[in-house]
């Protein structure tokens, strides 16, 4: 089993992923948003179809104006607005989540760390609980808080923490300070009190 990466290698790796994705796809990199769209696929599929129809109508309008030789419309006619960037498709978002699983599996296997197990490791057993039933309850409640909280906050550690802070967005700086701060307080309570 190899050691975990040193901090500088991790920093370069996380930065490269975020920057490359932002420049290639021209959008923020966020995992909770992908979860949200995949889990509400019916609503999102209807939205995708509506956007596609709107785009067809917009192009038809642009073509009609160009065919009339009107050039840029003047007077009471407003220019046809450019549509906002379309969000990544549902398939792309689902592919992101599956790819994360594959990437994690490859890293664990290559480092010799892959181990099928029914617990969360010695650290979880020491710091939180070693009781299997309590572990299941804690993981489920923790998951609900993560899912609810990240969507209420509009992003998670990748969207707000990496991409948003990297762009110095005030909303992301506030969100990251709050979730890191809260996690620090709760982790100290788990370590020292519980």
């Amino acid at each position: 089993m190899t050691d975990y990466w040193p901090w500088w290698a991790g920093a370069i790796g996380l930065a490269l992923v975020t920057i490359a994705y932002s420049l290639a796809a021209d959008r923020s990199f966020g995992v909770s948003g992908a979860w949200d769209r995949v889990l509400h696929w019916r609503t999102e599929r209807d939205l995708e179809r509506r956007r596609a129809r709107d785009e067809v109508e917009r192009r038809a309008l642009v073509d009609a104006l160009a065919g009339a030789g009107s050039g840029p419309p003047a007077g009471p006619h407003a220019p046809v607005p450019e549509p906002p960037p379309r969000p990544a498709s549902l398939v792309s978002q689902a592919a992101l989540l599956v790819s994360i699983l594959v990437g994690g599996f490859v890293a664990a296997t290559v480092s010799g760390r892959f181990d099928l197990r029914l617990d969360m490791g010695a650290g979880f057993a020491d710091i939180v609980t070693a009781d299997p039933l309590t572990m299941v309850v804690v993981l489920f409640v923790g998951g609900v808080l993560v899912g609810f909280g990240t969507r209420l906050a509009g992003g998670c550690s990748s969207g707000h923490g990496l991409h948003g802070c990297g762009r110095l967005y005030p909303v992301s700086l506030v969100a990251t300070a709050v979730f890191f701060g809260t996690a620090v307080v709760v982790s100290f309570l788990l370590w020292k009190v519980v």
Partner: peptide
């Protein structure tokens, strides 16, 4: 939202 996320992440 961020506070709830922080608690969930820590536990």
């Amino acid at each position: 939202g961020a506070a709830l996320f922080g608690v969930g992440w820590a536990i």
